[in-house]
Structures are given as C-alpha cells and as structure tokens.
Design a protein around this nucleic acid. Structure first.
Lengths: 131, 131
DNA sequence: TGACAGGGACGAAATCTTTCGTATTTTCGA
DNA sequence: TCGAAAATACGAAAGATTTCGTCCCTGTCA
C-alpha cells in the first residue's frame, strides 16, 4: 500500500480554516475563530483543535515563540488550489482539464475582465505549444 | 440551520462507482465491480453496498424489475461535475470562477482543439453578456 | 503571592466513510 | 422439484472527520 499521493488534501472544515488564514496572512486561533464565527456557528476550542491537527498534518506552520501562537499556511492558496483541482480532475472529470474548464466557464457568467484574462492565457499557451 | 445545499456531493469512493456507471451508461453490480477491479482492489459486496447506499442517497436509480438489477446515475455526469465544481469553488476559491479557470488552464497544457473550444465558448459568453 | 483570565493540550463522543463477512433470497438446470 | 450458483440484504468493524468539554499552564495585578 503506497502512501497517498504527494499532495495533502484539506478536508472541508480544514478549508474553512485555511480560507481565513489565507485572508489574514497569519493569525492566532482567536482571530481565525472570530473570522469564522461571522459565517458559521463554531466553538473556539473546535477551531483550536483543527489548527492543532492541521499543524500535525503539515497544513499549517506555527510560531510558538509568541504567546498567542501565530499560525501560517504551509502552502500558498494557489498551490493548494492546484492540488484540489487535480483531485477533482481525477475524481470526476476523468483527468480531462478541458472538460473541467468548459464546465467551470459555462457554470455562470464571468466578468468581461476575467474573460479577457482567460483569452490572454489561451494565447500564451498556444504560443508555447506551437514553438 | 438549513439543510445542505441542493446538490448532493458524492464521496471519493462513490465517485469511482459513478465513473464506472457513467462510462457504461447503466450497469449491474457485477459489471461495475469488474470495471473497478481492473484499477483497484475492491470486494464485490463492497461495490454492492455502495450502490445500495448511493441509491438511498439518491445518487443512483435502480430498476429492480430485472433480476440482475440495473442501476443508472440519477444525475448526468455534467450535472454532477457542476455540483462538485461549485463546491470546490466555494470551498477553496472564494467563489471566484475566474481564478478557478485560470488555475485549471495553467495546470497543464490542453490540446489545441480544447483551446479552440474554450475560445468559442468565451465568444458566446461575451455575446450573451453584451446583449 | 494568590486568584483570575486567556490560551492551549488532551481525550473522547458523535458522525460519516469505507469495507466486508454472513445470511437470505432468486434463478436456472438436471 | 431440488440444490448449486448468483444476487441481494443486513449488520457491523475499522477509519476519518467534526465538535467540544475539561483540565492545565502562565502571566498579571491587587
């Protein structure tokens, strides 16, 4: 039995924590707790426990030198997103990124700016491929 | 506390089952089992149990009139994909589909055909938006 | 210096997921 | 019609996840 792939997939609850930390850059348990409390009903120790578990799992880094300990995400949001995207890709899209993109786009209207940005990216990709 | 959104999110193992059924259109437990056996080690009753659970959850539909009962997916692959995509969107992308698309595209090269298809979709979207 | 408040570590209950073993029911030939 | 083989149902163990309650430090400030 081999280990799980390389990437660590945060669970749903862990994602909520990460979300808060990504927004705050770095944060104490209290800060994350207050941030999350605005959206969901959750206990303070629950948040703490998650952050401890996530630190063990390697999802978070903790600076214990300060008293209210400060946590940071071990991976950037973009890296994590890519990991989860790959997961979803293998899981439900048979590994076809094209399908995924198509679905994502057709899901709801993006802003003209976003569409433009995507076009640029497509151009860049085609350049790279042609060469 | 409201119920879970409308969409039903299949778990990872359930996705494997769905994958097989989507490919086969409709299938018996044995067929799904044989399909999955090629990739992973899994027991026959395990597959059966999952399919029963998934039927209860509403992920699958079962025709019990035939003897080796025949199962079908309750939702099309596309619908399910959209649901999971939305989930991921809310979970890790702060609801920004643009970011998701960008990440997905930059993840690995798509074929020129796919790129073309995406362009067409973008054009169509812009049309719709302008009107 | 002693009690209090804030912060943290632990352990454990409550739920979901994933996997099967075993028992029961059906179907099909001999 | 009887029984073996195939299908299906049931129940439950083993892991993960999610949530907290409780106990233990560590300063602080009267």
């Amino acid at each position: 039995m081999a280990r799980k792939k390389a990437g660590i997939r945060p669970t749903e609850a862990e994602c909520n924590i990460l979300d808060a930390i990504w927004k705050l850059q770095s944060a104490t348990v209290r800060e994350v707790f207050e941030h999350l409390s605005q959206r969901q009903s959750i206990g303070h120790t629950t948040v703490l426990k998650f952050m401890q578990i996530m630190t063990e799992k390697g999802l978070l880094l903790r600076d214990a030198s300060q008293r209210p300990q400060v946590y940071r995400a071990a991976q950037s949001q973009v890296e994590t997103q890519k990991g989860m995207l790959r997961s979803l890709l293998d899981q439900a899209f048979g590994g076809s990124p094209g399908d995924l993109v198509l679905q994502a786009l057709s899901m709801q209207k993006s802003s003209p700016e976003e569409i433009d940005e995507i076009r640029k990216l497509l151009d860049a990709m085609e350049e790279g491929t042609k060469k």
